[in-house]
Amino acid sequence: MAKLNVNGRIMDIQVEADTPLLWVLREQLGLTGTKYGCGVAQCGSCTVHVDGAAVRACAMPVSAFNEGQKIVTIEGLSPDSSHPIQQAWLALEVPQCGFCQPGMIMAASALLAANPKPTEAQIREEMTNICRCGTYNRVLAGIQRAAGIGTSG
């Protein structure tokens, strides 16, 4: 039994304590926007915010969280896809298959929350999520657009 604060709601969760947060989100709470990609915190498809910081939910047991921590998933990032990252993603048509994009968007929005004007080098270093379709250059440009800084061309 765990209590979680997910997207602003307190939820009672009935699972084994070692269940990864990812699978609680997907299977107990029906929040399937957060994706399973590797299960070992390598790919970042499962990225969510915990108190504003990017966390890879596949490798964190639900027992590591309490209701005092604010968990935000892609479904709760904004009520209407109006977050600057989502708007930049729409304008630049970042997604291809889109499977990794919830994780990308959550990682990018956490990056900007911590560092509103990142350098290109900082973005490249911080954004370690994997995309196999190959959207990296548009992800980079999207973050720069959302930050209101010029692209590198």
């Binding site: 399937t32 957060t34 993603w89 994009q101």
Partner: peptide
């Protein structure tokens, strides 16, 4: 022309096989 399938890939609403119920 902007592609037709972008919006649902920005907010978690795009359903993949893995998400099916």
């Amino acid at each position: 022309i902007p592609r037709l399938d972008t919006a649902q890939k920005l907010n978690g609403s795009q359903i993949y096989g893995m998400d099916l119920r």
